[in-house]
Design a protein around this nucleic acid. Structure first.
Length: 865
DNA sequence: ACCAGTTCCTAC
DNA sequence: TAAGGTAGGAACTGGT
């Protein structure tokens, strides 16, 4: 056969495995090459396996028992035992080579009765990446079996020696002609990791307009973004022939890696599936919704996207990235309509916000002016791409994939425990540590968390804020915390690390270096090196390199911070209940001892939460907290106070930092205010930059309303300037305005997330709630549904309180943005009271009570605190 | 007026 | 099934 070897750098978008022939399993890697074409690599050469070891009350692991197992039809071969560490001690582990992946689950359950079964629940495509130590970015060498439309010329020219490509593909376990540019075959030796790069990932965005009366798809728009260029497509007419079929053909031809849209997970994709199932018989469905990156003549259901119980859809070889979900996660908008999010990101762009079609009367609009509807649909197809680009979602997921060494798909759609698995399992394998299966235990007692210090109400001046650098990871490294070092019932050793109160023990680093501490300290070093690479690249003007390294360092940070949570969870494969509990125990011990020491030295610890301490600087009480302007001689006093606070902060940081518990000076504040509730404070930061820092208060909450947020922000600004009188006066005036009906209702919209389950018939079941109808946002959600607007479980629902006297209160869903409805009449007393309550908590510190704010008069003088 | 129970959202 | 954690504030309902 003619050599058609080819080598290229690829980014693995998604991976799967497939059993073929008598007892083979091929891994399919769907990739985007550095050069821009899409590639499927079919990898053979590995066999699925699980491992077994002797079990108390079960098999002892005799030669006879092992020989006996070879009679099982699922087992092809048993490798000689390897001694591996397990919680119950070092034991021989036999690797059982399995016929193919389809029999693993049954075999595992069969063997479990007599053996301890390990490494037995790892998807085969993940196993390939672990065993070959691959991340998403790989160099692949292989034989080209097929090259299609967008394939590079050199590959094309190497093609065509007369061999039928389809036969060649089937002969190595492939499904047929995949709808990609290049299909190649590789063996495991042909794959190797390469340096991270940014792949030219292709995105496709889709939006449908549908009939409210019949569920029919009226029109669709698709926009494909490749190398920053966009191609637009619109569809209308016969649902099958003019919309679904051509859209499906387009998806296969354009061959995107990422499928996006606004709320596609909950609207467009389910609707396409529903219409496809309604319109045609099952054998014809792949022509309508065969979006999977597998051959169209494929007999399996993988070609049709599906969604099990998951949030996201499975589209073979591609990655769904809903712009709604990305925006929600990163921006935390108060409301989640496309209109609202667009206005949030591009406040000045009127063109993007234009509401020219009434979506609640879609049938009417479609009948009257279909061309406008199509244009509206097309614009809403561009926006998700704009949003993803703005949020840099794709680049961040690719960076996360790179540091966690997973596929792009795992980084984008799977969960923290999968990312941690990817790092921990490959190290465990290298170190001969047995990998247990995911635990199926019920959650036990909750572990204790961080320590939160009481905060006195009032305004304090000149505060140094310190916090522990990567607190939980540092504690895990310093105390060698790992399931492999935990002394669970074993003999104590003088070198053990012992947790402060429950005396949980971990072996010393010298005795046994834990896997987790090693991974974490490697990640810390890796982050530092990405950070310096980013700075270096920026200094020589290489923005692209700087951007990539910045994304990578940020991904490392996310990954490091995920370790504690995963190891403290009840179900993770490597979890032991003492691990999470002892980490927080050390954390509480460290912070409390510093607070105690500071107290002994006469310092005033104003506040502390988990890993932070707020300490009052002594000797600068008389300095102004508001920065004097211009040539004011007091400016010098202010600057001296600031500098004193900075040097005080630095001295505390160095005094209390120790190995494995590094305390950093974070910020200097000229003023700190709290009304006396934990997790709620405001600071006037003067170093390293000047800004107001608000935590916890309604200002930060997405279920507040705009008027409360803006009034409270003003109140804080004035208080921190020392101008309480003005603050209270204008607060009082705002409350008065609300009472008199003088405010814009849009500023009174309250918005909360609402759960629910979409039923088969399309109705929404709210019975997750104990008493759904007593919840205002459930009633608002029902109003939305009534008006024909979409409802997505978990979405934020906006409403205005129209009458609070009755219980439960009466509310009106906020439909002005989406439908252009007239705003409802609000209940002035309710809003006046809510403002007074929230703002009164704050002004109370200055002797202005809630009642004073409502009544607009006050008994005492302002400056008697 | 106060309480318990439910729910959401935030700080770490 | 699929699955990072705890601490904490506040609003509201539906009772007494």
């Amino acid at each position: 056969m003619a050599a058609r070897a080819w080598e290229e750098d690829l980014c693995i978008i998604s991976a799967d495995n497939r059993s073929w022939g008598d007892s083979n399993t091929v891994v399919e890697l769907w990739c985007r090459s550095k050069e821009g074409h899409s590639v499927v690599v079919l990898v053979n050469g590995m066999r699925p396996y699980i491992e077994i070891s002797p079990k108390d009350g079960g098999s002892a692991g005799t030669e006879a028992e092992i020989q006996e197992l070879l009679h099982l039809p699922e087992i092809i071969e048993i490798q000689p035992p390897v001694t591996k560490w397990a919680p119950s001690g070092e034991k021989p582990h036999w690797r059982i080579m399995v016929r193919d992946t389809t029999v693993v689950t049954r075999l595992r359950d069969k063997l479990r009765t007599e053996w301890t079964v390990t490494s037995a629940d790892i998807q085969f495509q993940k196993r390939l990446m672990y065993d070959l130590d691959l991340g998403p970015h790989i160099s692949a060498r292989g034989r080209i079996l097929f090259s299609g439309v967008r394939a590079p010329v050199r590959a094309k020219s190497m093609d065509g020696n007369g061999e039928d490509p389809k036969d060649a593909i089937l002969a190595v376990g492939g499904r047929g002609i995949y709808p990609v540019d290049v299909i190649m075959e590789a063996n495991i030796e042909d794959l190797s990791p390469c340096d991270p790069f940014q792949a030219p990932i292709v995105k496709l965005s889709i939006d449908l307009e549908t009939s409210i009366s019949s569920n029919r798809i009226l029109c669709a728009a698709v926009v494909v973004e490749r190398d920053g260029d966009r191609k637009e497509h619109t569809f209308h007419g016969d649902e099958i022939e003019d919309i679904l079929k051509p859209v499906c053909k387009l998806v296969r031809e354009e061959d995107p890696d990422v499928i996006t849209g606004y709320n596609i997970d909950n609207f467009d994709l389910p609707r396409i599936l529903e219409r496809t199932e309604y319109l045609v018989k099952s054998r014809e469905r792949s022509d309508l919704f065969g979006w999977g990156r597998v051959p169209i003549d494929e007999n399996s259901n993988r070609i049709i996207p599906s969604r099990g119980q998951n949030r996201t859809w499975t589209i073979a070889g591609r990655v769904p990235m809903d712009a709604w979900w990305q925006a929600r996660q990163t921006l935390r908008p108060e409301r989640e309509s496309l209109r609202f999010v667009t206005a949030l990101i591009w406040p000045d762009n009127e063109e993007m916000k234009k509401l020219d079609v009434d979506a609640s009367k879609m049938d009417h609009e479609w009948a009257k002016r279909p061309m406008e509807v199509i244009q509206y649909c097309l614009r809403d197809t561009h926006l998700p791409l704009d949003i993803l680009n703005h949020l840099q979602s794709v680049q961040e997921k690719e960076a996360l994939a790179s540091v966690a060494k997973t596929t792009f798909s795992t980084a984008a759609t799977e969960t923290t425990s999968q990312w941690i698995d990817s790092l921990v399992i490959r190290l465990a394998d290298r170190e001969n540590v047995a990998v247990p299966t995911t635990r199926r235990v019920r959650r036990g007692e909750q572990i204790a968390g961080g320590y939160v210090h009481e905060v006195e109400p009032g305004l304090r001046s000149w505060i140094a804020v310190l916090d522990f650098k990567s607190m939980y990871p540092s504690i895990m490294i310093a105390n060698n915390i790992c399931p492999t070092t935990l002394v669970d019932g074993g003999e104590p050793d003088d070198d053990d690390y012992v947790s402060p109160s429950t005396a949980t023990r971990y072996r010393s680093t010298g005795t046994r270096r834990g896997l987790v501490p090693r991974l974490l300290s490697d990640l810390m070093k890796q982050r530092d090196s990405y950070k310096s690479a980013s700075a270096r690249a920026r200094s020589i003007g290489n923005e692209q390199e700087a951007f990539l390294n910045d994304k990578l360092q940020y991904a490392v940070k996310i990954l490091m911070n995920s370790f504690y949570g995963v190891f403290a969870s009840s179900f993770y494969r490597f979890t032991h209940k003492d691990i999470g509990a002892s980490i927080t125990e050390w954390a509480r011990f460290n912070i409390k001892s510093i607070i105690a020491d500071l107290g002994d030295d006469g310092y005033d610890v104003v506040y502390s939460d988990t890993d932070s301490i707020f300490v009052k600087t002594m000797g600068v009480e008389d300095s102004p907290i508001s920065k004097p302007i211009g040539s004011d001689p007091k400016l010098e006093i202010w600057e001296r106070a600031r500098d004193n606070t900075i040097s005080f902060g630095r001295s505390l940081a160095s005094k209390y930092s120790k190995e494995g518990a590094e305390l950093e000076f974070e910020t200097a504040m000229s003023a700190f205010f709290s009304h006396g509730a934990k997790k709620r404070y405001v600071g006037r930061v003067v170093w390293p930059r000047e800004e107001m820092l608000i935590r916890g208060y309604e200002v930060r909450r997405t279920d507040s309303f705009r008027l409360l947020t803006s009034t409270m922000t003003m109140l804080f600004e004035k208080i921190l300037e020392g101008n309480e009188e003005f603050a209270v006066e204008s607060t009082r005036k705002t409350i008065d305005d609300v009472r008199m009906g003088r405010v814009d209702v849009a500023d009174l919209v309250i918005s909360r997330s609402c759960k629910g389950k979409i039923m088969k018939d399309g109705t929404v079941d709210f019975s997750v709630y104990a008493n759904p109808d007593s919840l205002p946002y459930v009633r608002a959600a029902k109003q939305r549904i009534e008006r024909g607007l979409g409802f997505t479980p978990g979405m934020k629902v906006g409403y205005v309180v129209t009458e609070a006297k009755s219980s439960p209160m009466k509310v009106s869903a906020w439909l002005t943005e989406e439908l252009g409805d007239d705003p409802p009449n609000y209940d002035p007393e309710y809003y006046a009271r809510r403002l007074a309550t929230a703002l009164g908590r704050i002004t109370e510190a200055f002797q202005w009570s809630e009642r004073d704010l409502l009544q607009g008069s006050r008994q005492q003088s302002l400056f008697d605190f």
